[in-house]
Amino acid sequence: MESFKHIGVIGRIGSVKVVETLRRLKSYLVANDYQVILEADTASMLPGHGLQVASKKLIGEICDLAIVVGGDGSLLGAARDLSKSSIPILGVNRGRLGFLTDISPDDLEERLSRVLEGEYVEEKRFLLDAHVKRNGEPMGYGTALNDIVLHPGRSTRMIGFDLYIEGQFVYSQRSDGLIVSTPTGSTAYALSAGGPIMHPRLDAIVLVPMFPHTLSSRPIVVDGGSEIKLVIDEANENWPQVSCDGQQELACAPGDSISIAKKPFRLNLIHPSDHNFYATCREKLGWASTIAAS
């Protein structure tokens, strides 16, 4: 297993609980002779820290490991910024569900020490790129670890669009939009819209319609290497939007096209060695944890 010496720390802004955990994390790492580099915004929450400060990009270049303290949203943001580097990312949960940030603050030092000693499992998660074009000209670009979503924005009207997969026409649809999700995102927004749960190791993409104007429209699972294209109907009266992980918005107009494909770089996500995807689903989604007696 890889040895970690230079550790970048990224925290969610505006949370007292995150600050408390950051202080504990800093104290533990410094006491154990790790070289700690704080992300610039994170450093502002720890006045008098006395540590090196760097941008997320620089952390990806000079660190052996990045630790993200926050919720899954914090890790999603860090993943997009660090995906071009091969740096592993470890999440400490200070959010709600914590599908990605799976170290609990309650036993932070104990769990972290095991990971830093090499007791961890590693996963490669792929991301998606979205390119918006108007009359063939690029208008916007975004990246997502969870999902790319075409939606009406502030309007309550349905969107008309055409779907193409690998250049082949699939259907024309009127709905509240479409969720294009990775396996990582299959337990997030896509799940709430009726999509399937996909194991993180699958090389697949799921397309989940949002309140389609037909009963026969169902989620479609396609190969992870597929190129997906959405063409917004020119007859639309509203200007829809494309959302990347719910954190980055791209404005669209009637007639625009959105091309979605796998990003060439993968996120290197690590977990404690006892990590179990199905156990996480049981805990976070409220699945039954015992087998009823027959």
Rank of each mutant, 00 (worst) to 15 (best):
G8R: 00
V9D: 02
G11C: 07
G11M: 04
R12W: 03
R12I: 01
I13C: 01
G14L: 00
V16G: 15
V16F: 13
V18A: 01
V19R: 15
V19K: 15
V19F: 14
T21Q: 13
T21F: 07
T21A: 15
T21H: 11
L22N: 03
L22C: 13
R24Q: 15
L25I: 13
K26M: 11
K26Q: 14
K26C: 11
S27D: 15
S27N: 14
S27I: 09
Y28I: 04
L29V: 05
L29I: 03
L29Y: 02
A31N: 15
A31F: 12
N32P: 01
D33F: 04
Y34C: 00
Y34V: 06
Q35R: 09
I37P: 04
I37E: 08
L38E: 02
E39G: 00
D41H: 00
D41S: 08
D41Q: 05
A43N: 02
A43W: 05
S44M: 11
M45D: 04
M45C: 07
L46C: 05
P47M: 12
G48Y: 11
G48H: 07
G50Y: 11
L51S: 09
Q52I: 12
Q52G: 08
Q52E: 14
V53A: 10
A54D: 07
A54L: 07
S55R: 10
K57G: 13
K57W: 13
L58T: 10
L58C: 08
L58P: 09
L58K: 14
I62F: 04
C63F: 09
C63M: 11
D64F: 04
D64K: 01
D64E: 03
A66D: 06
A66K: 03
A66C: 14
I67W: 10
V69R: 01
V69T: 07
